[in-house]
Design a protein around this nucleic acid. Structure first.
Lengths: 167, 167
DNA sequence: TGAATGTCGTCAAGTATCTTGACTATATGG
DNA sequence: CCATATAGTCAAGATACTTGACGACATTCA
């Protein structure tokens, strides 16, 4: 579909960022399509991004805010939606009258299980496509990259300033 | 590779999709921040995604539509914005009274040059972080993956149906 | 103790990025 | 010339964000 990019001498992008973007978009489209096909019509990319930060045991909303890269108001709106869909519920934090705990409902946990299944299926397809060795190398490189980025961000904190999105 | 989920139900996700998403988001954030820091305040992620499909020699708007994964109306709106910012201009296609050619302005070409510079800087940081060998492996795996996906999509076309976003 | 200050979550309003549907103008192939 | 397809636009609405303002509770410290 984007194969013209390689044939074309006009120098369309071929660099890490572009490739990562393409691969990520493709994964998300495949995953979301499979989830919706599995009956989870509420599933969207933005919600998936948030759910990825919510442990099965639940989490405090404020912790979720620290962990995610988006504003607390955006998180709240996403949670409102997920709550309305019956995927999560919010309970008062017994240890802090201000706080709230975000927890999966049984419907939410069902969706997570389906998500795990779909993930493994997609991963298997990926291994089939590019081979086990290459897949392992890909995962290793991605892990190292993300870890390195986190470290670089910690170093930069307060040094460079606003280059990194700060909460 | 999704093993933690099975071993430890508490674990947060660690699978290809998640890693690709994280890496892609990080790249985009870094790139956009650098571009804005370089004086290109109009630069956004969505616009970047579109510019990535526009050759330096220009392109017909209809070709851009085929190439991108979003609706023609969305493309038009993005082009409206880019045109208002003075990054691209739209000229009538001399060979087709209906068509329009999208071309970079000199301001747009300047931005592309800055973009190339930023891209190379980021790439250099990546190589520093994870090593040349791993970086090469990463690029190879990503290329193979995207190529494989395009092939799989071509095969599926008309068979599976709506799993892949069509136009 | 109680007053200043900070944290947690919410409400409100606005923006960017997409969608679908309806339409006009031009091209093309009998 | 007419039927139909293609290129682009206009309009309206949904989603996913943003910033700003605010109330409720917690913590600190004089």
């Amino acid at each position: 579909m984007v194969k013209e990019l390689d044939e074309n001498p006009e120098a369309l992008p071929d660099h890490v960022g572009w490739r990562l973007w393409q691969a990520s978009r493709a994964w998300q489209a495949e995953f979301a399509a499979a989830m919706r096909a599995a009956g989870h019509g509420w599933f969207t990319e933005a919600r998936a991004g948030l759910l990825g930060h919510i442990e099965r045991s639940g989490i405090r909303q404020s912790a979720l805010i620290e962990r995610s890269a988006i504003s607390k108001q955006a998180i709240q709106q996403l949670l409102d939606g997920l709550e309305a869909e019956g995927i999560v519920e919010r309970l008062p934090d017994p240890h802090d009258g201000r706080g709230k705990l975000v927890r999966y409902t049984s419907k939410g946990l069902d969706a997570l299980r389906d998500g795990d299944r779909v993930k493994m299926e997609i991963e298997r397809h990926y291994v089939d496509r590019i081979g086990e060795e290459r897949f392992t190398a890909l995962m290793g490189a991605l892990r190292a990259l993300v870890a390195g980025q986190a470290a670089a961000m910690d170093e930069d904190a307060g040094v460079e300033g606003e280059v990194v999105e700060s909460k």
